[in-house]
């Protein structure tokens, strides 16, 4: 295994309020990693820092490159589709992605869109929360990069759509790529996770393999995660 993502001494403040500090993290290639933490813990901020959209202090390296512009070419992240007008159709957004991302795979997008039931003629304003998330997943996974980031793809989505999204992740995620998926509900995604990273007290509290957690603690991932917040687990 080679290190896909390395974060060293990362800190980030906004309005003189510390949001993340002393973040150290190394993720290997070919892993599906759950980025867990309660609301406001800093999961989205960490993702924005990884992509280079947020500017913190410290070193972030993705597959050997560390400048924000180089990192952007190695990471696929769709930030809530902000910037597109609500009148734009799904096909127009797809066309935009094809234009600006040389690694965008139109064929893979079509397969994903069909699987997820996306209608290219639908306007952004007409999309339900679930369909919007499906579009985000289709766009994100259609790029051919080393690292994929999905920010709370299951929030406010019905269980059938969740299953569909999870299946699309399993089916279309390239084997050598790493996926980081953030959420504060663990149960749904736990079966597909190789590792979890828990953000608490503005830093990475735990980074551990899910198999290791199950073997060593005899707990499922959800229970283990809940114990972390209750203070019932030794973090070492």
């Amino acid at each position: 295994m080679t290190a896909m993502l390395t974060i060293k001494n990362l800190k980030y403040s906004r309005n003189q309020r510390k949001i993340l500090h002393d973040v150290q993290l190394t993720l290997d290639s070919g892993k599906i990693v759950g980025l867990l933490g309660e609301n406001g813990a800093g999961k989205t901020t960490l993702m924005r820092l990884i992509t280079g959209n947020a500017k913190g202090n410290g070193t972030i390296t993705i597959n050997g490159v560390h400048t924000p512009v180089q990192r952007k070419a190695h990471v696929s992240f769709t930030d809530h589709l902000n910037g597109f007008s609500t009148g734009q159709k799904i096909n127009q957004i797809k066309h935009f992605y094809e234009l600006v991302y040389p690694d965008f795979d139109g064929q893979r997008y079509q397969e994903l869109a069909t699987f997820l039931g996306l209608d290219g003629q639908q306007k952004l304003a007409a999309l339900s929360k679930g369909t919007r998330e499906k579009l985000i997943i289709a766009l994100t996974l259609s790029r051919q990069v080393d690292l994929y980031l999905l920010d709370e793809p299951f929030s406010g989505i019905d269980s059938m759509s969740r299953k569909k999204i999870i299946n699309s992740i399993i089916k279309w995620l390239p084997e050598t790529a790493t996926l980081v998926v953030s959420d504060h509900y663990v149960a749904e995604i736990a079966p597909i996770l190789d590792e979890i990273v828990v953000i608490k007290d503005q830093t990475v509290l735990v980074h551990r393999a899910t198999d290791d957690i199950r073997d060593a603690t005899n707990m499922d991932i959800e229970t283990y995660y809940e114990h972390l917040y209750e203070g019932g687990t030794d973090h070492d």
Binding site: T78, D79, H80, N82, Y101
Partner: peptide
């Protein structure tokens, strides 16, 4: 202004 402030556009891999 909207292009610069929208996260979607700023994720594009091109020099600032």
């Amino acid at each position: 202004e909207r292009t610069v402030t929208a996260p979607t556009y700023r994720l594009i891999p091109i020099h600032e």
